[in-house]
Design a protein around this nucleic acid. Structure first.
Length: 329
DNA sequence: GGGCTGTACTG
DNA sequence: CAGTAC
DNA sequence: GCCC
DNA sequence: TTGTG
DNA sequence: CACAA
């Protein structure tokens, strides 16, 4: 449950797009308390500065100094996940996140080991990557047909490790197999139909367009509605996996009656093309998961999530749905 | 050795 | 209830 | 996998 | 432009 | 983010 909206500032993402240096993949920890703000504090232990992203000037964005490392580990994480080794995958994921956030290139096993979330086993792997540029384990675990196939199948929205494995033991190997022989749930049919689009990254600019599209529709229904994209967009990423829209209204009431009209309007225009999860019978709908496409030629189908919350939960919801970058500190 | 977030939807 | 996703 |  | 919810 | 200050 989300509790008191407490005080949550330092959150809004700087609007200045003039940031030329928009690398791509990574945490661009937000604006932060800069030195000045801390002056009143008598002590600012330097290890504190190291440990908390929020205490670093990180002004623009934190380069990922260790992309070569996280890239290799990601492969293993994905493979383990597909093999239902959930917890191992989680361990990898946390380590990857921590390494990504690490402010300088890692040069030794020792250094890796000092990072919270990186234990002995992963430190060894990091060291191997640092020295040789790659991980033998990756070839061992990821490059057999089964691993490749499982991961391909998990790219279908609605299909997880269990389903992927089921398809595999039935002898399916390609998406084509699934299309003609597989029995898919409604979700998976949609996931397969838009496989390529859904699995491609969305340019930041396009996310902004989608945001504006939804906002216009919302304002046509009720003025004053707040429409904000969270997720990786709000974390400043150059590309996003999906679009995460948070909707609320300052009057603390209007959010209750907004969902249905908004969805209907977005459907009328053909913007929403497919529904995944949407409980519209219930008057208390909280979220919508579906597929949308901007008008015009050559637009791709994109995964869209819409979350409507009461105003009193706005701030916590914004934090929650904006996610990782803020919590990994 | 045991936890690793908690919740909601679908079938 | 299992599986999946957020 | 990691951490306690 | 900033402060606030 | 939207809106008031």
């Amino acid at each position: 449950m989300l509790y008191s909206p407490c005080k949550l500032r330092h959150l809004q993402k700087d609007t200045d797009e003039k940031n030329t240096s928009r690398e791509d993949d990574d945490t661009s920890a937000e604006d932060n308390t800069r030195e000045g703000s801390f002056k009143k504090r008598k002590f600012l232990p330097k290890e504190l500065k190291e440990k908390f992203a929020c205490a670093r000037p990180s002004g623009k964005q934190v380069k990922d100094f260790n992309h070569h490392i996280t890239a290799e580990l990601e492969k293993l994480a994905a493979a383990y996940k597909s093999k239902k080794d959930t917890w191992r995958a989680l361990g990898y994921q946390k380590a990857i996140s921590a390494i990504r956030n690490y402010p300088r290139p890692i040069t030794s096993r020792e250094e890796a080991l000092s990072i919270r979330g990186v234990g002995g086993r992963l430190a060894d792997k990091v060291a191997e990557i640092v020295e040789s540029g790659k991980l033998r384990k990756v070839a061992e675990v990821c490059e057999d047909e089964e691993a490749q196939t499982l991961q391909r199948f998990m790219g279908v929205w609605g299909a997880g490790p269990t389903t992927a494995h089921g398809w595999y033991i039935q002898g399916y190997r390609t998406l084509e197999d699934l299309r003609e022989k597989g029995n898919l749930t409604r979700h998976q049919q949609i996931g397969l139909k838009y496989y390529d689009d859904i699995n491609s990254r969305i340019p930041r600019e396009e996310v902004a367009e989608i945001e504006n599209y939804v906002r216009s529709a919302a304002h046509g229904i009720k003025k004053g509605l707040i429409v904000m994209v969270c997720g990786s967009y709000r974390r400043g990423r150059a590309t996003c996996g999906d679009v995460d829209v948070l909707v609320t209204h300052p009057d603390g009431q209007s959010h209750e009656t907004v969902f249905q009209p908004l969805l209907n309007k977005l459907r009328e225009t053909g913007f929403l093309t497919d529904d995944l999860v949407t409980q519209e019978d219930n008057g208390n709908q909280k979220k919508y998961l579906g597929v949308c496409k901007l008008p015009g030629e050559g637009q791709k189908y994109r995964r869209l999530d819409v979350i409507v919350v009461p105003y009193c939960e706005f701030a916590p919801a914004a934090m929650y749905f904006t996610g990782s970058a803020h919590f990994n500190r």
